[in-house]
């Protein structure tokens, strides 16, 4: 039974200039004790997906459709239906789902001590007096490997190093022992050694608490190391979803394949230009019709050549299960004779 199920989530930003479909039909599941990696280029909707789950999407963004089902007491509650500033969602935020994100420098208020902010998080979800909450905060700091926790509590975030700050951030996210930790690029701003330590810490904490982790990153290395399952996103859509081994060793979607080709490897010949993905991410107001990746796809099928008349620049592909637990959204894997998808004019 999945801990959290996201079903066909769509989060749009509606402005005068046009509508940005930041998340456009994302579907995936998260399981206790497992890590789901979400990977994609900047602007593919990874972070907005995370924020949609917690219902903290900034204006003018808003969830237009889809379900976010959180398992609770044997049943499910749909987070997408909750009042975004209501009591119920606030119980979920920090209480059941913790968030760690990419900028440890600015994720803490510069004029409040780190301890003040962590203790606040504890007291929001646990009925503890100030002294006990402080003791709990010290315990949390020790758990995430901060030395001299008593002293650190009274320091300001800008007095801590990047690694310590991220550890403090994780401690704050874990204040109420959430069942799910969303880590949005948790190591991007850190140097390589600290990165490795933080990832190690997350793995360690997961072993101890059996929580689920949703790890958002653009770093395929981190994914390879941490994730059990991987979701590859492109322009707000899930293009491929599968176990980490399948994604790395038998990628199906041309986009995933291209991503993996653009990684420098130790056995590659030196001083040779790496293959790149041609073109760039289209402007959000000018999404291509059909498969959003088709203008950059090497294997694009034009209408005349395509079987059943299904072509990439006209028909939007749906997620097709290629094997157990591995699905891909690409017309290349269409079974012959399957229903022709509706031609969707995405660009408006």
């Amino acid at each position: 039974m999945a801990l959290l199920s996201v079903r066909d989530l769509r989060t749009y930003f509606v402005a005068d200039e046009g509508t940005t479909r930041a998340v456009d039909g994302a579907t995936f599941d998260l399981y206790a004790g497992k890590t789901l990696g979400i990977v994609g280029e900047t602007g593919c909707g990874k972070s907005v997906t995370a924020r949609s789950i917690l219902r903290i999407v900034e204006r003018p963004g808003r969830i237009v459709s889809g379900e976010i089902l959180l398992q609770r007491d044997g049943g499910y509650i749909d987070l997408a239906k909750l009042d975004p500033d209501g009591r119920e969602i606030r119980r979920v935020r920090g209480g059941e789902i913790g968030l760690v994100f990419q900028e440890p420098m600015t994720s803490f208020s510069p004029v409040h001590t780190v301890g003040d902010q962590v203790i606040e998080a504890i007291q929001l979800h646990r009925r503890l007096d100030k002294a006990r909450a402080r003791a709990r905060a010290i315990e949390l700091f020790r758990m995430v490997g901060i030395s001299r926790p008593e002293g650190r509590l009274d320091e300001y975030s800008w007095q801590l190093s990047g690694g310590l700050r991220q550890r403090a951030m994780i401690a704050m996210a874990l204040a109420a022992e959430p069942r799910l930790l969303i880590a949005d690029e948790p190591t991007t701003a850190l140097d390589v050694t600290t990165q490795a330590q933080i990832l190690e810490l997350l793995r360690d904490l997961q072993r101890k608490t059996h929580m689920a982790i949703m790890l958002i990153t653009h770093d395929l290395g981190v994914i390879a190391e941490m994730a059990d399952d991987v979701v590859v996103m492109y322009l707000g859509r899930v293009v491929e979803h599968g176990p980490v081994d399948q994604i790395f060793h038998a990628p199906k979607h041309p986009y995933t394949q291209a991503l993996l080709r653009s990684i420098p490897g130790i056995q590659h010949e030196a001083r040779v230009k790496l293959p790149t993905i041609s073109g760039s991410i289209p402007h959000p107001f000018a999404r291509p019709a059909g498969c959003p990746f088709h203008p950059r796809c090497a294997l694009v099928m034009a209408c005349a050549a395509a079987p059943d008349g299904v072509c990439c620049d006209h028909h939007e592909p749906e997620l097709i299960t290629v094997e157990e637990g591995h699905s891909v959204s690409c017309h290349l894997y269409r079974k012959k004779g399957a229903a022709v998808p509706l031609a969707l004019e995405s660009a408006r």
Partner: peptide, 27 residues
């Protein structure tokens, strides 16, 4: 209001009013 610590505060479970008054307004 655009700084990440506002999102941190919201993600902890603070209500919007309290989060805004305690953090960005204070800064």
């Amino acid at each position: 209001l655009r700084k990440p610590y506002v999102i941190t505060a919201l993600a902890k479970g603070l209500s919007e009013r309290r989060a805004i008054l305690k953090y960005p307004v204070r800064v």
